[in-house]
């Protein structure tokens, strides 16, 4: 392979000693920023994911509207590709020039990532909660535990444990996707430069259209999986402990 005609060019392009010496420091600083964002985003993702999963699996009739809201959250933000969400929120919110609201792309990019990932994590945690057999709830309620105590002490510890591998998988994906924020940052800079020289107007409409198309595909799939889960739960006799 080292005799291939393009080898020298390729070797220089991918493994340049000069670039390696001069750029490693800069890249490492960027990497540290990514890790900082990751460390902030991850607890937020887990907390929001857990909260929405708990609300979505609640059996109380009073919480029905909340359940619908949570289902919409998941459908919209899980259906929308992370990069499009990053453009829409990471570039879109600063472009609104709101008073007293930060224009930091890093900040809004992190918000976008958290929203996107918490929608995935919600579904992972939810599947964990639903994997706990209803007889476990029956046993806990029979001891006189309230529904919240049952959730906290019996259902969640088992449910979360069963999805730890899946959560770790999402965590690894998150470490990589925080890097997308720097791409959005670069896009933001070039837009700024362009608008400084001419009457350049950055338009979000294409991203909105793309987002809607993606969500339209994902939403029915979400409904299908909801229907399937509900059917399984009915067969196991879940409804009894509302």
């Amino acid at each position: 392979m080292t005799h291939a005609p393009g080898w020298n060019d390729a070797h220089h392009t991918y493994f340049s000693g000069h670039v390696f010496r001069t750029q490693t420091g800069t890249i490492f600083r960027g990497f540290l920023i990514d890790m900082k964002i990751f460390l902030i985003a991850e607890p937020c993702v887990l907390a929001i994911g857990l909260l929405i999963a708990v609300l979505r699996t609640s059996l109380s009739p009073v919480l029905a509207p909340v359940r619908i809201g949570c289902a919409l959250y998941v459908d919209i933000f899980r259906g929308c590709p992370t990069l499009i969400l990053l453009y829409l929120i990471g570039l879109g919110v600063p472009a609104l020039h709101l008073h007293h609201v930060t224009k930091s792309v890093e900040f809004w990019g992190t918000v976008a990532i958290v929203i996107s990932y918490s929608a995935y994590v919600t579904e992972v945690v939810r599947s964990g909660i639903q994997s706990v057999h209803p007889s476990q709830r029956a046993a806990a309620r029979s001891l006189g535990l309230s529904s919240q105590q049952t959730l906290r002490l019996v259902v969640l510890p088992q449910g979360v444990r069963s999805v730890v591998p899946a959560l770790l998988n999402d965590l690894v994906a998150l470490t990589k996707d925080v890097g997308l924020i720097s791409i959005v940052g670069a896009v933001a800079e070039s837009i700024e430069r362009a608008t400084a020289y001419e009457d350049y107007f950055f338009n979000f409409t294409p991203y909105v259209i793309a987002a809607i198309l993606f969500i339209l595909v994902a939403a029915p799939l979400g409904r299908l999986s909801d229907w399937y889960t509900l059917r399984t739960m009915r067969r196991q006799g879940w409804a009894a402990l509302a």
Partner: peptide, 17 residues
């Protein structure tokens, strides 16, 4: 919840945590 505390229930499939 208060009523259930006065019962002790044992199930066919144990249902231990």
């Amino acid at each position: 919840d208060a009523v259930r505390r006065k019962f002790g229930v044992v199930f066919q499939s144990y249902n231990l945590f």
